[in-house]
Computed example of a mutant assay.
Amino acid sequence: MSLTLNVNGRDHAVDADPATPLLYVLRGDLQLNGAKFGCGLGQCGACTVTVDGKAVFSCVLPVAAVQGRRVVTVEGLGTVQAPGAIQQAFKAEQAAQCGYCIAGMIMRAKALLDATPRPTEAQIREGMQPNLCRCGTHMRILRAVRRAAGLPVEPARAGA
């Protein structure tokens, strides 16, 4: 079935079964590989993108559910040459270790900061909680979110 998706500000015509997970269309049809397949169950967050500004697990969201809505992937936030503000904060805090979860973390942070530009520590922790980092860089990720929000960032401790 032919569907039209708005991804990163551009309309894309795709031929996909309406029940196909959005993640598969992003990666397979549109060659946007930032969102990763992690668990396939909407439990890890590696596939997180935003739909109309809300963070969603694209591995469990049928592509038909996003017709007429705005999808943004990490590729829509900036480029290697000109990274967006949140990407810059994650880089400054060295929040990535293996990098597998980072696109999803960045997109979750984007949705959080768009909804709550100056979040409290509790709001940051709650907002980022659905996404997992198996390498354990959560403290650096939290610092990156604080940095992106313009909040004070305590110095990193050894191993954090």
Rank of each mutant, 00 (worst) to 15 (best):
Q88D: 06
A109H: 02
A85R: 15
G104A: 15
Q31I: 02
L3A: 07
E75W: 02
D52M: 03
A158W: 11
A103R: 03
P62R: 01
E75T: 12
T20R: 15
K36V: 01
A95T: 05
L41P: 00
V14A: 01
N33P: 00
F90A: 12
E154W: 11
G38Q: 07
C59V: 01
A158R: 11
K110Q: 09
G78K: 04
K91F: 11
D29E: 13
L61E: 02
A35Q: 06
F90K: 15
M128T: 12
Y100H: 10
L77T: 05
T20P: 06
Q94K: 11
R125F: 06
A16Q: 12
V66S: 05
P117Q: 08
L77K: 07
G104L: 01
N33D: 13
L77C: 06
V74M: 08
C98H: 03
Y100Q: 09
L61T: 15
F90P: 09
M1V: 12
P83A: 12
K54A: 10
V25Q: 07
A55R: 08
D11F: 03
P62L: 10
V49G: 12
V60G: 03
P18E: 12
L41V: 14
A160D: 05
F57V: 09
L112I: 08
V25R: 13
G150L: 01
N6G: 03
V56W: 04
R147S: 05
S58Y: 05
G84T: 07
C44L: 11
R108Q: 12
A85L: 09
N131P: 04
G99Y: 10
T48Q: 08
A92D: 12
E75P: 00
H138K: 11
G9C: 14
I124T: 04
A64Q: 12
G150M: 05
G136A: 13
G42A: 15
D11Y: 08
A16S: 13
A95S: 14
G40P: 02
R10H: 09
A111W: 10
F37P: 01
V60L: 13
R143T: 01
V14M: 09
A95M: 08
G78V: 09
G150F: 00
R143H: 09
D29P: 04
